[in-house]
């Protein structure tokens, strides 16, 4: 184990995926440091969501490597990747509509994830307290017994963030967390995200530049599956290539 391997939380190297010859992600390399908040921007179709899909195992890479601490993620199953400490929020809110907010959070509680573990899972004080705590963080403490189907769009997004928080992942990946929200919800969400990205590494996909500037440690600009530019927001913002393909519009 060399030092430079362990100093990064996530090392993506030469990552490539091709769909029938079309390279959606093409030789991508980047590293995420502990407690860093990395924002990915780029025009639609640049491969941002695909990168997240590749890291969390939803799409299988054609070649390359994704190392999370010392584990090679590309050979692991989705659930193993999650249990290793990588959490993922999808673009559209995906919660369990037929279950209550409480049950939604409970299913993400990091215990009893095997078949028999879940069969003999006990809803003890620890579970209840933790859910209560998270529910307060995500502004849903009064709605714990409501069916998730009855939540507003923004509340569903918060619930999904809450489901990630309860997993307490070391690396959190968020795909457009404020998309489709009202101005008020957006503000609350920004506040929420600022609070939760504190003690962990985060990768965020976002289009809202104000929001990006607010939270980003570093920014990666993707274009046609490749890195167009990378660095601090100030540097990226003034990169002529970036202005041409993305910010200029």
């Amino acid at each position: 184990m060399s030092i430079h391997q362990t100093s990064f939380v996530l090392s993506v190297e030469d990552l490539t995926v091709s769909f029938d010859g079309f390279k959606a992600v093409d030789g991508l390399t980047f590293y995420v440091e502990p407690n860093e908040c990395r924002v990915m921007i780029g025009p639609n179709g640049a491969g941002k969501t695909t990168v997240l899909d590749l890291i969390c195992g939803r799409t299988r890479a054609t070649s390359g490597s994704v190392r999370f601490k010392d584990q090679e993620l590309l050979s692991m199953r989705e659930d193993q990747i999650v249990l290793a400490g990588v959490g993922r929020k999808f673009q559209t809110p995906s919660v369990y509509e037929d279950l209550s907010v409480f049950e939604n959070l409970e299913l993400s509680f990091p215990r009893g994830h095997g078949v028999f573990g879940s069969l003999f899972f006990r809803r003890d004080a620890e579970v209840k307290d933790r859910i209560q705590e998270i529910a307060e963080t995500i502004f849903l403490a009064d709605l714990l017994d409501e069916k998730a189907a009855f939540l507003s769009h923004g509340q569903k997004q918060w619930l999904e963030i809450g489901m990630l928080l309860i997993q307490d992942p070391e690396l959190l990946m968020l795909d457009e967390p404020v998309a489709g929200m009202s101005v008020a919800e957006r503000k609350k969400t920004a506040e929420l995200l600022n609070r939760i990205i504190d003690h962990r590494s985060v990768i965020v996909i976002e289009h809202d530049m104000g929001f990006v500037e607010d939270i980003a440690t570093r920014v990666t600009v993707l274009h046609q599956g490749k890195t167009l530019s990378e660095g601090k927001m100030d540097k990226v913002k003034n990169d002529p290539k970036v202005i041409e393909v993305y910010l200029g519009h």
Binding site: E78, D79, F90, S94, V95, Y96, E97, S108, P110, H113
Partner: peptide
Amino acid sequence: DQEDRVRFSGYD
């Protein structure tokens, strides 16, 4: 209802 979400909550 949400097979993918379950998978990404860490269940096989």
